[in-house]
Design a protein around this nucleic acid. Structure first.
Lengths: 138, 138
DNA sequence: ATATTTACTTTGACAGTCAAGTTATCTACC
DNA sequence: GGTAGATAACTTGACTGTCAAAGTAAATAT
């Protein structure tokens, strides 16, 4: 079997297992996958307007409006009208939202530690570097 | 920043981008993400019963029953009663289902080719090997 | 034999989603 | 300045995916 086919299998398998892990982690929390994902994007990339956030999440702004409304009621995000464009609304994490993001991020880090526990420091670094090359090509 | 934190970022970024790619590829097809995912699992792991399939997909058998019903109507999968356990039902791809799986798989392979186009044969092999180590730890 | 477990199905309630249409605001052009 | 078109966000209606809980039928244990 060619390297490319094996690599494809490995990448796909990783993606599937990661999705499964994420799903089970979220199921144990009191928030939905969509909600955690929203907090995750805001935490990782910082506050942004509705359009950018919807784009990053891969959903329409219509769907996002409803989602953000719920998160505002839960006091996890806040909305701020932009000063230079009054149509635009910036969505940002509240302190409570930030805390949840940090907790979720700690779970991710802990998973990464587990996954790479049999790798040498050199191997971890190589994997990271190769993945970064791959990520740039998307 | 420690290697483990960078590695975590790289893995998470890959997962996010892959999810986004999958979602946009599926949106262009005439089938839903859940449907394609079901065909994907059956294609990659072979025919299996409802319980295993639900488990692999991370959904309940109740949800799967409805999903399989739709796929049967679309002639993409078929149900067969197991001979040694008459409660158990084996779900398998039909020819049409197999064709869709192969088409989707070709898209994945093509993505992998694109993603690794700037990697040497050696690097591809290293990445594949390291990912396989990681995948085993899930 | 009968009680328990297992495999699957059915049903009811609810999240997430999109498409299409609406409103408010901004930008470009006369 | 005034008007037309573009843009950002919101609203609504329809549909899919989801689970939990309850139901059915078959296998297994006692």
């Amino acid at each position: 079997m060619s390297t490319i086919v094996s690599l494809n299998k490995a990448l796909t398998e990783f993606y599937d297992k990661m999705a499964s892990w994420e799903s089970s982690v979220v199921r144990e929390s009191e928030y939905s996958l969509a909600q955690i994902h929203t907090l995750e994007v805001l935490g990782n990339y910082g506050a942004m307007n509705m359009k950018s956030l919807a784009n990053q999440l891969g959903i329409t702004t219509g769907t996002l409006t409803v989602q953000v409304e719920k998160l505002v009621k839960l006091d996890l995000v806040k909305r701020q009208h932009s000063e230079d464009d009054r149509r635009s609304i910036t969505v940002a994490l509240t302190e409570a939202g930030q805390a949840i993001h940090e907790h979720h991020n700690a779970l991710h880090l802990s998973l990464t530690e587990d996954l790479s526990k049999d790798l040498s420091e050199n191997e971890r670094h190589t994997l990271m570097a190769l993945l970064n090359k791959v990520n740039q090509e998307f």
